[in-house]
């Protein structure tokens, strides 16, 4: 099984429906890239979600060497449309990888449209993260519709899909297998590749009762509720 160690292109833009797992994917990708010794920026472009955003784990990212591009600290707990000021610089900095964590669905994807022209001059992947246990992306039809909507408002060409087949504490192999199938069917209709599959089942990945024919990004979860014992021990 192939494990994802870093993004394939210099710039990776993560889009997708609300709650599809873009932020966890972005954080995990950024940490792996930085720990692998590469310079890496993570930019939080989420203007639509009030909590559970990548800016909340800034210290973990910075310790690992990720350069975080968040709105200025005084805006951390707001829902104001403030973008990280250094984003343009990061997009042009060809010595570093850049991961853009964009807000959910068409509404959230609008924030990246303003960067579409500078992004078009760079080598980028725009990946649509899909969790088929989430409302409005539960069938291949719905995934195709959602992805087209995001492409339209973001002015990006989406280059691949990321399957994130989870149901939090209720995730089992059936949830993973049926989820991958939905994303596969959508990918086939769109003529796009599945770039990787996110799995939070890290320890058991080798024991999957079926073959996962895609690279796997093992997920560690950072967006935890405040009663989580792990968080209180952190």
């Amino acid at each position: 099984m192939e494990i994802v160690e870093r993004p394939t292109r210099r710039i990776t833009i993560l889009v997708g429906g609300f709650g599809s797992g873009k932020t966890e994917t972005a954080i995990n990708l950024a940490l792996r890239t930085a720990r692998g010794g590469e310079r890496c920026y993570l930019a939080d472009l989420d203007l639509v979600t009030p909590f559970f955003r990548s800016r909340e784990v800034g210290s973990v990212l910075e310790e690992a060497g990720v350069k975080v591009l968040f709105p200025p600290a005084r805006f951390t707990q707001t829902d104001l449309p403030v973008l990280p000021p250094a984003l343009h610089h990061a997009i042009r900095d060809r010595t570093a990888r850049v991961i853009l964590d964009v807000g959910g669905s068409e509404v959230g994807a609008r924030a990246v449209a303003g960067f579409a022209e500078s992004l078009a001059r760079e080598e980028y992947d725009a990946l649509c993260v899909v969790n088929p246990r989430r409302p409005f992306v539960m069938t291949a039809d719905e995934v195709v519709r959602s992805l087209r909507g995001i492409e339209l408002v973001s002015r990006l060409r989406i280059t691949g899909l990321v399957a994130n087949p989870h149901a939090s504490g209720r995730t089992d192999w059936r949830v993973i297998r049926t989820g991958i199938h939905v994303v596969e069917e959508a990918a086939r209709r769109l003529g796009l590749p599945i770039k990787f599959v996110c799995l939070h089942f890290e320890r058991a990945v080798d024991k999957a009762p079926f073959e996962i024919a895609y690279p796997v990004l093992p997920l560690e979860l950072y967006m935890r509720p405040p009663w989580d014992d792990l968080q209180s021990g952190r």
């Binding site: 709650g19 246990r133 989430r134 409302p135 539960m138 149901a167 949830v175």
Partner: peptide, 17 residues
Amino acid sequence: MLGELLLMKGNEAVAEA
């Protein structure tokens, strides 16, 4: 349209319920 097990935000779940 919707399957048996979903991952939902509380806001979405109240609306669907």
